[in-house]
Design a protein around this nucleic acid. Sequence first.
DNA 1: TCTTGACCTTCCAGTGACTGGAAGGACTAT
DNA 2: ATAGTCCTTCCAGTCACTGGAAGGTCAAGA
Lengths: 131, 131
Amino acid sequence: MNIGTAGERAGLPPKTIRYYEDIGLLVPERQENGYRDYSDDDVHRLRFLQRSRSLGFSVDECRQLLSLYGDKGRESAEVKAIAETKLAEVQRKIEELQSLREVLSHLVTHCHGDGRPDCPILDELSGKAGD
Amino acid sequence: MNIGTAGERAGLPPKTIRYYEDIGLLVPERQENGYRDYSDDDVHRLRFLQRSRSLGFSVDECRQLLSLYGDKGRESAEVKAIAETKLAEVQRKIEELQSLREVLSHLVTHCHGDGRPDCPILDELSGKAGD
DNA sequence: TCTTGACCTTCCAGTGACTGGAAGGACTAT
DNA sequence: ATAGTCCTTCCAGTCACTGGAAGGTCAAGA
């Protein structure tokens, strides 16, 4: 199967799939004409990668997950540990963004937003407003 | 004032400050020996940049904010618009991460995480579990 | 058969916002 | 004089792609 078709089935652009090959994530067979040849199994792995990436796993984490996926003798504890770490990271990011949201929404509601040049947002950013 | 001192006062590493100069965000005077010379006003701007960046504004947005900050005749509406756009982005990111958290925490709680090789996380990632 | 257009190939460069490191000059303290 | 810390520039690397150029391959239609 050509890269375009594989990409469609896996939900990934060909560019990305070639990149994954470059970094050794998934190296397909080649057809006689030099085109990459993806098997159904490859497409499965690509979809696996697509899902993992969209869940926020780094490419390196995906590499681990993929090798665990292919390893019949693996222990699910390893996989769980990776997922738990990621979950904690996501939680931390959510909290950071929430406090960021508080500050921004405070700024926005206190700015009259008309033609007057004085602006509480810039005042706050510049540190005028009592840090 | 040397770059190290300016960096300490503004909460930014010298490398970053030099980078900001490279991209034309803040170009300081030079001392006779060739060292960069930061005024108190420069430090103020650097702190402004540090705050804005940590609030999630892109460098380009910071550039806009900084020029509005220096523009006595600006309208606060412009500033408010930038902040509102950013607020909406932050909100969207929070929502994305929350749904990501749901999936991950579902995965984690359903994985027994022991020596057994079968693992619901990998099953889910591979698409076995009914997509 | 020719041609068009879509697909494929490789390679190189750019993104954003830094960060690391090398090589060398300047300054301070002892 | 010397050691150590700061400063300079320049180049390269990060992460995960993405864009584009130049050229090869293939399938369909006139």
